[in-house]
Amino acid sequence: MIAGGGQGQQELNGIAGWAADVIDALGAVGVGLLIALENIFPPLPSEVVLPLAGFTASEGKVNVVAVIVGATAGSLLGALVLYGLGAWLGHERACRLADLLPFVDTAELDRATAWFADHGGKTVLFGRVVPVVRSLVSVPAGIERMPLTRFCLYTAIGSGVWNTLFVLLGYVLGERWTQAEKFANWATYAVLALAVLWTVKFVVGRMRARARSSA
């Protein structure tokens, strides 16, 4: 697969080259399979696959609507695999795992469970447009046995928005499709920064609580 770049024609390699080969061979179905795999294995970035698929569509090699539908179907398939993993794990196994982790206890897990019961729908819906979170959010949904119909609906809507955005970016940018990854990078940095701040706050709070309990 040859894609354009700022310096002219350029051979794709690595993940992008492999994804290009899959899309060339299988079209929209290949896009769906790649996105399903990305949901299960986040290091395979949809921020590369989707704009590349959009660029391929802009060259007339595949239909752009079929690409979006295929990507969203793949998102749902991958999410259901992780949902099933969470359902198999269940609340009791999750509690046993929590006992093995520092600074985590089952009471906190119970509070998180109650929070997810109240806000799980919004978490699944909006989590689909947040890098990293969009894959992991399926696991707690499975653990708490969110109704499957709701889970599929929220996943399809949220994933459809994300997929449409990046496919169309690749379609519009054409040979400059790699620039679409910059948008995802900004979102990833913001999420990571918030996650670090939350983790620090959580750990400090637990340490202070234990110190007060010991005193």
Rank of each mutant, 00 (worst) to 15 (best):
I143A: 03
Y154P: 00
Y154G: 00
C152I: 10
L148H: 14
R128W: 08
C152K: 05
V129G: 09
F126H: 05
T149Q: 08
R150S: 13
M146N: 06
T155A: 08
Y154D: 02
C152H: 04
I143C: 06
R145S: 12
G142Q: 05
V139A: 09
P131E: 07
E144C: 12
V129P: 00
C152Q: 07
G127A: 07
Y154F: 15
T155V: 13
M146F: 03
V130E: 06
M146G: 02
V132C: 10
R150P: 00
V132Y: 04
Y154H: 15
V129Y: 05
P131D: 08
A141G: 06
F126L: 14
A141V: 02
L153H: 03
V137Q: 06
S138N: 08
R145I: 01
V129W: 07
G127K: 02
M146A: 12
A156P: 13
Y154A: 07
V133R: 05
V137P: 01
L153Y: 06
F126Q: 03
L136W: 07
G142T: 06
L153V: 15
A141R: 01
G127Y: 01
Y154N: 03
A141W: 00
E144L: 15
Y154V: 03
L136T: 07
R150G: 15
S135A: 14
P140F: 01
V130G: 06
P147S: 11
L153G: 05
Y154T: 08
Y154S: 07
L136K: 03
L136Y: 09
P140W: 01
R134G: 09
R150F: 09
T155N: 09
V133Y: 08
L153C: 10
V139P: 00
L148W: 13
S135W: 02
G142P: 04
A141K: 00
S135Q: 12
I143L: 05
A156T: 15
L125T: 11
F126G: 03
R145Q: 15
A156Q: 13
L125R: 11
V130R: 08
L136S: 05
V132F: 14
L125H: 11
S135C: 12
G142Y: 00
L136G: 10
S138P: 04
C152M: 14
F151A: 01
V137R: 04
T149I: 12
P147C: 11
G127P: 07
L153F: 13
R145W: 02
V132K: 04
M146W: 05
S135Y: 01
G127V: 06
V129H: 06
I143N: 00
S138A: 14
G127W: 00
P140N: 09
V130A: 11
A141T: 03
T155K: 02
V132A: 11
V139C: 04
